[in-house]
């Protein structure tokens, strides 16, 4: 940490719409921690705030767009990536960040997610995974582990859930990482790397939901959950994403780390190259 003198306000204050605070998230919720990390990551990247846009969907994590003093966009349920796609293609100079929850991005908007990853659009997707639709009372999401109790599955979940890093990596994302709300420094570093990465970069952050998920499953408080992350997470950079799924409610180990970091032409580069080749001088390159 750098040496600062006479600082009288929170270093993340300039990124927040302070008139809206205190925010709606529950006591101990992990989303605020990740917003903290995001603000510090943006500060470290040095991206001008006018060149950064943040898009959120609906849900607890969807409220992030409302609390950040950036060009922010609160979209319809599940369509955050669809809006971000349009935003990125219309103004390629803009750095577009999608910040939303698991239910929104891979539940309702799963199709947008896989196709944005397949096309390798130059956007950053930050997914906060709390294993439930928390804002609407705790319905089951595609990420809910086996046996977990949700409002709509009072006898436990029996479906196989999504392994999100594997989903993103197999669809073609160039940067895939997973961390938990306990690993604040690593989350910040991953966000810096993802913001600087050209192409579809994806970070999954596992966060405690003390009011809905933890209470309904009797897993203790937010502090217990963070301690659990601390004791049971294993850092394996470059791990095979097929093995990193969280299948049961309390796995012996949560594999975290940076799984994929490759170089691949993104959507606009590929489009310009291909159309430039086919159409020759007639073609005006877009976004360069």
């Amino acid at each position: 940490m750098s040496v600062v003198e006479g600082i009288k306000e929170n270093p993340v204050e300039e990124f927040l719409r302070t008139d809206r605070l205190p925010h709606v998230w529950c006591s101990g919720c992990g989303i605020g921690t990740t917003v903290n990390c995001f603000a510090r990551a943006v500060k470290e990247c040095g991206i001008p705030l006018n060149d950064l846009a943040i898009v959120s969907g609906i849900g607890c994590t969807g409220r992030v767009a409302g609390y950040l003093r950036l060009d922010s966009f609160h979209t319809t349920h599940g369509r955050a990536i669809a809006f971000a796609t349009g935003l990125h293609l219309a103004n390629p100079e803009l750095k577009v960040v999608v910040y939303s929850g698991d239910g929104d991005l891979v539940g309702i908007g799963g199709n947008h997610f896989i196709h944005a990853a397949r096309r390798n659009l130059d956007i950053t997707v930050i997914l906060i995974n709390n294993f439930t639709y928390a804002m609407t009372g705790g319905q089951v999401t595609p990420t809910a582990p086996l046996d977990s109790i949700e409002t709509t599955t009072p006898y436990g979940v029996f479906e196989q859930n999504f392994n999100l890093p594997h989903l993103a990596a197999s669809c073609g994302a160039v940067y895939v990482a997973r961390w938990t709300a306990y690993h604040v420094m690593q989350v910040k570093k991953a966000m810096v790397e993802a913001l600087n990465k050209k192409g579809f970069s994806f970070i999954e952050i596992i966060a405690p939901c003390p009011t809905i998920y933890l209470r309904r499953n009797r897993l203790g408080s937010a502090i217990d959950e963070l301690k659990y992350y601390k004791e049971h997470s294993v850092i394996q950079h470059g791990a095979d994403t097929r093995d990193v799924g969280i299948d049961i409610r309390r796995p012996e180990k949560i594999i975290v780390g940076k799984f994929v970091d490759i170089e691949k032409p993104d959507y606009l580069t590929a489009m310009n190259e291909h159309l430039g080749e086919v159409l020759g001088d007639k073609y005006v390159r877009w976004g360069e």
Binding site: P22, C29, T33
Partner: peptide
């Protein structure tokens, strides 16, 4: 300050 979900505390 990094952990605080409510932006209510910070140290330096």
């Amino acid at each position: 300050g990094m952990y605080c979900p409510d932006f209510a505390i910070y140290g330096f």
